[in-house]
């Protein structure tokens, strides 16, 4: 399948999305809620582009979930797109003025200032739901969006320390705005108000995972051939040694 992104001819497989194809061609499209290992959410609305499918009208679409088609023409940066992204950034920075990471950089890049009075000046969350997706895909789905409208937030069931959380910290790792707090002190980890014991690697001695996470991986039979008692880097070293010997 052939398409054109910013005048560059690109090859793509059916079912791929415009943002992924553009990135392969070295064209970056701004986004906050996207993680290459997770499906697109189209939540942050920053990856807007102009797309013209062959023989059809141009429309503004979110490139992270817009499928490629034969002869598709994409423009990732135009006056119109820039204007729309500025509006999106204004709304995001008003909601989450304390957000860490890319949001502030984009605001600077697009010359956006927060002209509104934010409802909560300490808010970091843009409610993109990337953490919820990560927990669904990798963990037990211990968090979700609760309530709605202005009260909407990411929470665990009954807003209590979640009983099913395995403390893998995937939610905190993917969070693009630094909202989810996760503290490791070498012995234990605290996340979502729950304390977990950290297991140490018998080879290098570094704490690398919670007991619950290892039990979960064993239960889900993720990598049956893996030695889950070792940390990922020691495991890689062991595998490398074995393949040299083998």
């Amino acid at each position: 399948m052939r398409l054109t992104i910013d005048g560059v001819a690109c090859e793509a497989e059916a079912g791929e999305f415009v943002k992924a194809v553009a990135e392969r061609a070295g064209i970056t499209i701004p986004s906050i809620c996207h993680h290459s290992a997770l499906p697109g959410l189209a939540a942050c609305r920053l990856c807007l582009v102009e797309a013209t499918p062959a023989g059809k009208r141009t429309e503004v679409v979110t490139s992270c979930v817009y499928p490629v088609s034969e002869g598709l023409q994409v423009v990732t940066m135009s006056e119109r797109i820039q204007r729309l992204r500025r509006t999106v950034l204004k709304l995001l920075i008003c909601r989450a003025p304390a957000a860490e990471g890319r949001l502030a950089e984009y605001c600077q890049e697009y010359g956006v200032q927060n002209n509104f009075t934010p409802p909560d000046p300490d808010e970091k969350c843009i409610l993109c739901g990337l953490c919820v997706k990560a927990c669904e895909e990798l963990g037990p789905a211990a968090i979700a969006t609760v309530m709605r409208g202005v009260d909407k937030q990411i929470q665990s069931a009954f807003a209590e320390a979640p009983t099913d959380c395995i403390g893998c910290s995937s939610c905190a790792k993917v969070c693009p705005t630094g909202k989810i707090s996760c503290t490791d002190d070498g012995e234990s980890r605290v996340i979502w108000g729950k304390r977990f014991h950290l297991e140490k690697c018998p080879v290098c001695g570094r704490p690398f995972a919670t007991s619950e996470e290892l039990a979960w991986l064993t239960h889900r039979q993720v990598g049956e051939s893996l030695d889950l008692t070792l940390c990922p880097s020691c495991r890689a070293q062991q595998a490398a040694k074995q393949s040299v010997r083998g």
Binding site: A142, I143, A144, V146, R148, A157, D164
Partner: peptide, 10 residues
């Protein structure tokens, strides 16, 4: 997951 029912309930 319980949280998904809680999400709907709220």
């Amino acid at each position: 997951p319980l949280v998904q029912l809680y999400s709907m309930a709220t």
